[in-house]
């Protein structure tokens, strides 16, 4: 099919910057030769500009994603997390499902025989206090990072300093690249059964991230996920959406930051070594 026969597709793809260079060159050669396609090109350009200006005004406001997220969390409460195994189970072939069900029944019958079917004592207060003690233990692990750390990011040396503040209830991380006077701060605190990390970014926004399940700093790390972000000028602004801190050994840590920028996600990995003070 020639460009002339396919002119609508070519004009749209040209305006939307989807043509390859050779396609664009061929189209422009054709437009020089064909007056009717030139007219269509002009009309399509005017309309493209008008649509751009007209439709973009109807975008949802900056808080839209937060509303969607809040609504989702309300309608699907946290305890639904435990259904992940069920999803995996539903994806298994029938034979495997039967085997899992049989195994589960066997386990339950075994428990009833050995315990006489008695229920385990359990209260929400116990669970909460256990959760709080886990988060406090995780905070203590994080507090062990106090001191100075050094790493390299994109060829630039980066210094990180951890200090305890507010009577030992907050851990402050100051991160400073060697080629900049800017310091970014992240504050870590405990809130009941979870930890909070609030990052004060040099981009001017402040993502607040929490642990959903408090991890172990020395194993898989402690992972924080975004719950809210303040200071955003547009929804497309670069901002962090998560952080995992892992203690690789007593002198090395890894930070995995996830971010969102113009709708695209990404991950930045930073590794730091403890700076040992010479005697």
């Amino acid at each position: 099919m020639t460009i002339h026969e396919n002119i609508d597709n070519f004009l749209a793809a040209d305006l939307h910057r989807d043509l390859s260079e050779s396609e664009r060159n061929a189209l422009h050669v054709h437009l020089v030769e064909c007056a009717s396609c030139r007219t269509l090109h002009q009309e399509t350009k005017v309309m493209d500009k008008f649509l751009e200006e007209n439709l973009v005004q109807e975008k949802p406001d900056a808080d839209f994603e937060q509303r969607m997220l809040a609504g989702f969390r309300t309608r699907i409460p946290e305890h639904s997390r435990s259904t992940g195994w069920l999803v995996d189970l539903m994806r298994l072939p029938a034979v495997q499902i039967s085997a899992v069900v049989a195994g589960f029944l066997g386990f339950q019958i075994g428990r009833m025989v050995t315990r006489g079917g008695g229920a385990e004592p359990s209260t929400s207060i116990q669970i909460e206090s256990r959760g709080a003690s886990i988060s406090e233990a995780a905070f203590k692990q994080l507090a062990s990072l106090v001191g100075e750390w050094q790493g390299v990011q994109d060829g630039v040396p980066v210094k990180v300093i951890y200090t305890l503040a507010a009577n030992g209830t907050a851990l402050m991380e100051q991160m400073q690249p060697a080629n900049s006077a800017e310091t970014m701060i992240t504050m870590f605190t405990v809130d009941g059964d979870h930890l909070i990390a609030t990052h004060y970014c040099s981009n001017g926004n402040q993502p607040q991230m929490v642990t959903n399940t408090v991890g172990n700093l020395e194993k898989d790390g402690v992972t924080f996920s975004l719950v809210r972000v303040t200071g955003m000028k547009t929804p497309d602004d670069w901002h962090n959406t998560g952080l995992t801190v892992t203690l690789d050994d007593k002198d090395h840590i890894t930070q995995r930051w996830t971010y969102l920028y113009k709708g695209k996600t990404g991950t930045t990995v930073m590794r730091y070594a403890r700076v040992k003070k010479s005697l």
């Binding site: 975008k59 949802p60 839209f64 994603e65 969607m68 997220l69 989702f72 639904s80 997390r81 259904t83 992940g84 195994w85 069920l86 999803v87 995996d88 959903n212 992972t223 996920s225 975004l226 929804p235 959406t241 998560g242 996830t258 969102l260 709708g263 695209k264 996600t265």
Partner: peptide, 25 residues
């Protein structure tokens, strides 16, 4: 991200909410 969400990773699904809600809108 999609694979994790399908397998019930709620954090992954919440990330998808952040990145895809506007397109759905």
């Amino acid at each position: 991200l999609y694979r994790a969400a399908i397998h019930g990773d709620r954090d992954a699904f919440e990330m998808i909410i952040r990145t895809h809600s506007r397109a759905l809108f």
